[in-house]
């Protein structure tokens, strides 16, 4: 399931619900991304999405991951709008028969979300607002899967 939300979410409750009722998935891996304060350099984040398009693009990537890693299920929850330091921005959970596929798919989906998912991230701080673009490291990370 792919879900965009402007509200804070409870990653623990999301993970519990994702695991519930699984009798065939031996492995669930999850990742939670949290807004960093950078010691006061970032006071708030704002994420812009393209409603409709953003969910569809993440859904396409989740379908690719499902095939590539033989997943049983995928959950992506992603915030947009204003986000305070310490709040979760994104959560990915993957379910598969065995752990290796679940771990790798989670890593793959996060690399995708960092540099290819339709979001635009603005950081606010004492130095003024700044649009964040993928770093060299983000681009190296996604290139690992090509």
């Amino acid at each position: 399931m792919i879900r965009l939300t402007t509200e804070p979410f409870d990653s623990g409750a999301e993970l519990t619900a994702f695991c519930a009722g699984r009798t065939e998935s031996g492995a669930v891996a999850s990742f939670v991304g949290i807004a960093r304060g950078d010691a006061g350099a970032t006071t708030a984040l704002e994420l812009e999405a393209y409603p409709g398009f953003t969910e569809a693009e993440i859904g396409r990537m989740a379908a690719t991951a499902t095939t590539r890693f033989a997943l049983h299920d995928v959950l992506v929850v992603h915030r947009h709008g204003p986000i305070a330091p310490g709040e979760p921005i994104v959560m990915v959970a993957t379910a598969s028969a065995h752990r290796r596929e679940a771990f790798e798919a989670c890593d793959y989906l996060m690399d995708y979300l960092k540099s290819r998912a339709p979001f635009w991230k603005k950081e606010y701080g004492p130095a003024g607002p700044r649009w964040v673009e993928p770093t060299a490291r983000d681009l190296d990370d996604i290139a690992r899967w090509d």
Partner: peptide, 10 residues
């Protein structure tokens, strides 16, 4: 028509 600068989520 939408114009999309480099994307950054997560």
């Amino acid at each position: 028509v939408a114009f999309l600068p480099p994307m950054s989520g997560g």
